[in-house]
Amino acid sequence: MKQTLLDTIENADKDKDGCLASAGYVWSTLNKECIKLYESTITLYPQSNLNNEDETKNAYLIFGENGGNEAELYLPSQEKSIILVRQTEGQPWVFNEWQLIPWKGFQLKKGDEILFSGDGEIGPKVTGSDKIEE
């Protein structure tokens, strides 16, 4: 089969799972599909800067389709996501020293320290800088 320049360009930017990284897509292990982090996940902001607008410093969270007992966590500057699991509703999701606690949205702790938190809404937080000027 002959490979064209267009085929080469289209495949050059896909990761090992076939997700188009330059368009913001990453692989969701839980949902087994490419997702856009900034649109389809819950954003968790660094506890040290809850008004952070640098998307590369945020953590991102998506829930599995199995009733919410599994959560997939994308941490800044970490290539592979982490799967957190909870035993029953109302309990935190955990993986090793990580805990995701449902409190005023969500708080993400590593050990005893809260590192990230968010309001629990899907998509980025709307701030004053996002308003359209008239």
Rank of each mutant, 00 (worst) to 15 (best):
Q3A: 15
I114G: 00
Q99W: 03
E55T: 13
G64A: 12
L44N: 01
L84I: 05
K36R: 15
N66D: 14
Q78A: 09
V126F: 11
N96S: 11
Y38N: 15
P92N: 05
K109H: 04
T4W: 06
F63K: 07
A59R: 02
T127R: 15
N52Y: 07
G118E: 02
I122G: 07
T4P: 02
A71W: 00
K131W: 13
I101C: 01
K32E: 13
K14R: 15
L115V: 00
Y74F: 12
D119F: 03
E89W: 09
D13M: 13
K80G: 05
N96Y: 06
I35T: 09
L84W: 00
V26T: 06
I83A: 12
L6Q: 10
L30D: 05
S28N: 11
L115A: 02
F116W: 03
L20W: 10
F106Q: 02
I9S: 11
E53R: 14
E65T: 11
S22P: 03
G105W: 00
L44K: 00
K57T: 10
Y38F: 15
G120A: 04
E113W: 02
E79F: 01
V26K: 05
K125E: 04
K2T: 14
E121D: 14
Y38W: 15
L20A: 12
N49F: 04
L100M: 07
E70W: 05
N69K: 12
L115F: 03
V94Y: 02
S77E: 10
A12I: 06
Y60H: 08
I132R: 11
W103Y: 15
I35M: 09
K14F: 14
A59S: 08
K32R: 15
Q91D: 06
L100V: 08
E72K: 03
Y45T: 00
L5Q: 13
